[in-house]
């Protein structure tokens, strides 16, 4: 599905991501863990196209996508749930999710402003799919509320719904459960698990190792921009380098 080929990116001479080569299989749920500043978000930005690599490249579904813009990559099926809440303010929950439908619809300014047939054909489908996505994350009762008025946990799920409305083939989740209450984390975990069962390919970044290892097929550990370990959740939990670099002393017995 996705291969990164020795991809690197530095800021002011310091590598945020260094020679990272990953291969994500179709239908895989890949966990990415690493301490603060390890380069996890930077890696995601390289995949979505918001950052350009200094060297290295990306192959997605058999084609090079190095030169594709972020919105083009989105229409190729790469969606992201950002770290923190990046919402569209002044728009309702449903409208926020409807924006995600940009990837599979076409009508532009003329059709929208003059309500040409193309507008009517697409608008209904956009609304239906968006409603389904809102339902799926359990936000239906909030659909008419302004996005910024939602509590944090709901905002995270809103972002997931927006990404789902784009009908992604590869979904990147950057700390979708951090800062949430236990019950909200469970909700997010439930949605992710179900998407995994349906065969969606995902990459999941989280600080909470338990959360990631409970969901992921494989886990990649980043530290200072480099891959320091890669394996099944069980292997990762036992890897000494990982314990030293990231999990810390107490985590080994936890």
């Amino acid at each position: 599905m996705l291969q990164t080929d020795r991809i690197s990116r530095s800021f002011g001479g310091v590598f945020a991501v260094r020679d990272v080569s990953l291969s994500i299989a179709e239908g895989e749920l890949r966990g990415i863990i690493g301490p603060n500043g390890a380069g996890k978000s930077t890696l995601f930005n390289l995949i979505t196209g918001h950052l350009r690599p200094d060297h290295g490249g990306l192959t997605y579904r058999g084609r090079r996508i190095d030169r594709a813009s972020p919105h083009h990559r989105a229409s190729l099926g790469i969606s992201i749930v950002f770290q923190g809440a990046r919402l569209f303010r002044g728009m309702t929950v449903l409208e926020n999710v409807m924006v995600g439908a940009h990837t599979w619809t076409r009508h532009g300014f003329w059709s929208g402003a003059l309500r040409l047939p193309r507008y009517w054909r697409e608008e209904h489908r956009i609304r239906d799919r968006a409603k389904a996505a809102v339902d799926r994350v359990g936000l239906a009762p909030w659909a008419g509320r302004y996005a910024e008025s939602l509590p944090l946990g709901h905002q995270r799920r809103l972002q997931i719904a927006r990404a789902l409305c784009a009908q992604p083939k590869l979904l990147l989740l950057d700390e979708p459960a951090s800062g949430l209450r236990a019950e909200e984390r469970q909700q997010v975990a439930r949605v992710v698990r179900q998407l995994h069962r349906e065969g969606l390919t995902m990459m999941l970044v989280e600080h909470d190792v338990g959360f990631v290892t409970g969901l992921a097929d494989r886990v990649t550990v980043l530290d200072l921009g480099e891959v320091i370990a890669d394996g099944t959740p069980e292997e990762i939990r036992e890897d000494e380098r990982v314990i030293a670099a990231y999990l810390g002393e107490g985590a080994a017995d936890a």
Partner: peptide
């Protein structure tokens, strides 16, 4: 940034 990732040119 988020708009681009949602497919908005």
């Amino acid at each position: 940034v988020a708009a681009e990732s949602a497919g908005v040119p």
